[in-house]
Design a binder for these strands. Structure first.
Lengths: 175, 175
DNA sequence: ACGCCCCCATATAACGGTTAGCTTGATCTA
DNA sequence: TAGATCAAGCTAACCGTTATATGGGGGCGT
């Protein structure tokens, strides 16, 4: 998980790694299961090295397993405030599929249009899954919202693939 | 750039790093300028270490700068064929924004609805840019196709943000 | 002729996200 | 009591990405 996300979760209250991981999983619903177990620990140690969090080797609390409790430093608080206030959005990652088509056509490895078609079928499958998941979730839940976003994305990508197909068929008859 | 992409470009013909980079940039149009210059060399050395490409220290050709020409090994050809045939699609990356909202609300760092609004304005700006870019490109060019995909994505994300706003306002009045 | 700048071409260190896999103890259960 | 499962944590390693460095060569103005 992105460092800032972990940092922001830690801003609510100091936690140990496992609790943090559980909170993240809860906030994502069924999609949280995709997270890798070790991810949090990697991120936490890196945050510590960067001086954004501190550990307290707490045998002070009566917590059974000899514990590492993580909390934010002043720098950490500053960083998370900064992150919350900044607007950023992941750049669309369509380039690699496009390059796959270009490369496949150039090296005569496969028919681009067949590739687009296969991709369309795959996205259709995922779209059905996402829509089924939306309905399976309780109305208005976090998970339902996320699945809805995924479905909207997939629909947009489907329409792009249609545009790709048109473009490549034109290109084939045109050359 | 992803290793497989570089590999696939190399499948067309053996090249040296710089040519490869130029070919990639051409295939992406104006978006290709975002590529980092050194990226290709990092990827190529890693591919070499993995045994998927080989270098030929060619002073054999009358090429001025003492040259490293890269070409695919048998394993490399196999790998690229595999890649072309596999259907994969980047997983939608909506989780981090969702977690930003959750964390901001939980730690009372900011008003989630204000965050959604700021994001909406930003995406609207980018959408206008993308649509302008579509029209600036020659009809049917690679770059126009890519920009169209980006625009479609952004529209989908906008609609998701609207759903987010609805959901969080409901949640606020409901708690 | 000299200095300057830009392009070709390559390389490298380092950061950050992700994964696979390991350990160790506790708890459950057949 | 042996085996399975789970909590809790850790590590090595891969890959994508960036910033930055290094030279050689060609044009160009003064």
């Amino acid at each position: 998980m992105q460092q800032e996300v972990v940092l922001a979760m830690l801003a609510k209250e100091a936690s140990r790694g496992y609790q943090l991981r559980a909170r993240l999983r809860d906030a994502l619903g069924p999609l949280g299961d995709d997270m890798n177990a070790g991810q949090i620990y990697v991120t936490l140690t890196r945050l510590e090295k960067a001086g954004l969090v501190t550990v307290e080797e707490s045998a002070t609390r009566a917590e059974r397993p000899d514990g590492k409790v993580y909390s934010l430093t002043a720098d950490g608080h500053h960083r998370v405030a900064e992150w919350v206030s900044e607007v950023s959005w992941p750049r669309p990652d369509l380039a690699v599929f496009h390059l796959k088509l270009v490369a496949a056509a150039a090296a005569r490895l496969a028919d681009p249009i067949a590739l687009v078609d296969a991709q369309r079928r795959e996205l259709l499958r995922r779209l059905r899954d996402a829509q089924r998941a939306v309905m399976a979730e309780p109305e208005g839940s976090d998970a339902a919202l996320l699945y809805e976003g995924i479905a909207l994305r997939l629909q947009a990508d489907m329409r792009w693939l249609e545009a790709c197909e048109k473009s490549w068929t034109r290109r084939r008859s045109g050359s």
